[in-house]
Nucleic acid binder design. Structure first.
Length: 423
RNA sequence: GGAGAUGUGGCAGAGUGGUCGAUUGCGGUAGUCUUGAAAACUACUGUACUGCAAGGUACCGGGGGUUCGAAUCCCUCCAUCUCCGCCA
């Protein structure tokens, strides 16, 4: 959510940047500014009324004390009209605030200056590629065949127990999954991130804090009995650790990592691109999160991308880094890099990480601020990225490393798996 | 889940209808004193909105209500503690 003052002061820039998203915000912003003007004048009128009321109330108290009952009663009469109009103003103000909030929720984040214009993922900019794509035999299998062949993941059994999109990992498949989680966490810890294990369910305030609500309500599993949401990513509980917090400059940067299962309803997505591990209702992910001083957040974004690149290098997977164009950029992000690994058997790139700078967009909703050197409270910048999402990494590992002898495990993982081949 | 108690500023802890945005102590910042430090003393020390400013307004767990006036009374929700029940 953008701050109204920021919108007022940077209207032209915002509108220009919105063009990268193909988002026309002219009418919305004008409406917001107009409504904010109304908010101010209503507030002003209300404040004056309250001030008047407070003054009279004090007089009444004084008069009672002096025993001047009659005068007090007279003044009491005066407060009646004041009170009534105060109620009207208060209602008007609430209505305005509600409308204003609703409009502000509709404004996406302002894309960073370097975001390429574009309408779809076809316009994303490839800024880096690494690793060579292995050449496989003609009889190479996609991962959903490999997992069956080696008894690593049972999709059908998951259907029985829960439903489609809830696979059962077993044997070496389970072990490999656990190894990847440990590997990712250890790498993050080595990079200075503090590990946290957060709740897998969050309350409504947290879901609003990171922007899942109100726009993505249908994507989360919701438990009405207790008014809780299953987390779609660890970003939600971990970023919300810093909701309503005022940090000191010396606290920067805050670096957290956490492994959690993630739950997504994925309503409306079916078909071949959701086959096997490509899209699930429950999947594992290690997330990295940073809270940073606004001056340093873009530097930090690069280090986070480097961290993820390091993971992929160690896993010896061919990958590329994309800078998302405006049309593909998430609602809350100012700049996002996607990392994709190449699945040789499926012959396509699979998104395994998304690293974003949200600037103050989340911080404004979270009310996560810091005191600057002048003692003024300012909004922080929040960043996060997957490091990494497990299922597609698993898919790529299985597919790219298949040989006639079995599936080879990359060296970096062997200490975690305890085996170097699946056969 | 049942019964009871509690929730005040960074912390501790007063305040039970009016002069309370809130006594006091600790902590913090600045100053005086000192070669320096400590001690002592003095002043300042929450957040947000609004205004050029002076100022005004709101906030005593959250929300709502009673009242001319609420930290103080009422309702409701949340959290914590104690006891009981249940339980990995």
């Amino acid at each position: 959510m953008l701050q109204t003052n920021y919108i007022r002061e940077n209207k032209e820039t915002i509108l220009e940047r919105y063009q990268k998203r193909n988002f026309d915000g002219v009418a919305l912003i004008d409406q917001i500014i107009k409504l904010d003007d109304e908010r101010k004048s209503t507030q002003h009128a209300l404040d004056n009324q309250l001030a008047e009321g407070n003054k009279l109330a004090k007089q009444i108290g004084q008069l009672f004390k002096e025993g001047k009952q009659q005068e007090a009663v007279q003044i009491k009469e005066q407060t009646k009209a004041l009170k009534e109009s105060g109620i009207v103003l208060k209602e008007e103000q609430n209505k305005i605030l509600e409308q204003l909030k609703e409009l502000l929720y509709q404004l996406p984040n302002v894309p960073n200056q370097t975001v390429p214009a574009g309408t779809s993922e076809a316009d994303n900019e490839t800024i880096f590629e690494a690793g060579s794509i292995p050449v496989l035999n003609d009889n190479a299998l996609p991962h959903w065949e490999l997992t069956k062949k080696y008894n690593l993941i049972d999709f059908e059994l998951g259907v029985k127990v829960a439903g489609a999109g809830f696979p059962i990992y077993r044997g070496k498949g389970a072990k490999l999954q656990r190894a990847l989680i440990s590997f990712f966490l250890e790498e993050a810890i080595e990079n200075g991130y503090e590990e946290v294990i957060p709740p897998l369910m969050v309350n409504e305030a947290s879901a609003y804090g990171t922007g899942q609500l109100p726009d993505k309500e249908g994507q989360m599993y919701y438990m009405p009995a207790d008014d809780l949401y299953m987390i779609p990513t660890a970003e939600v509980p971990i970023t919300n650790l810093y909701r309503d917090v005022i940090l000191k400059e010396k606290d920067f940067p805050i670096k957290n990592t956490g492994y959690t299962p993630c739950f997504r309803r994925e309503a409306g997505s079916y078909g071949s691109d959701v086959r096997g591990l490509n899209r699930l209702h429950q999947f594992d992910k290690v997330e990295i999160i940073q809270i940073q001083h606004p001056d340093k957040s873009y530097e930090t974004l690069d280090t986070m991308v480097d961290h993820v690149k390091g993971l992929l290098n160690k896993l010896e997977l061919p990958y590329r880094v994309l800078k998302l164009c405006g049309g593909d950029l998430g609602f809350t992000a100012a700049l996002t890099f996607d990392l994709e690994v190449y699945s040789t058997a499926q012959k396509k790139w699979l998104e395994v990480s998304s690293v974003s700078n949200f600037e103050t967009f989340q911080a404004n909703r979270l009310k996560c601020r810091y005191k600057d050197d002048k003692g003024k409270t300012q909004l922080v910048h929040t960043l996060n990225g997957s490091a990494l999402a497990l299922p597609r990494i698993m898919a790529a590992l299985l597919e790219n490393n298949q040989t006639d002898d079995g599936i080879k495990i990359p060296k970096a993982l062997v200490p975690y798996t305890g085996f170097d081949i699946i056969n």
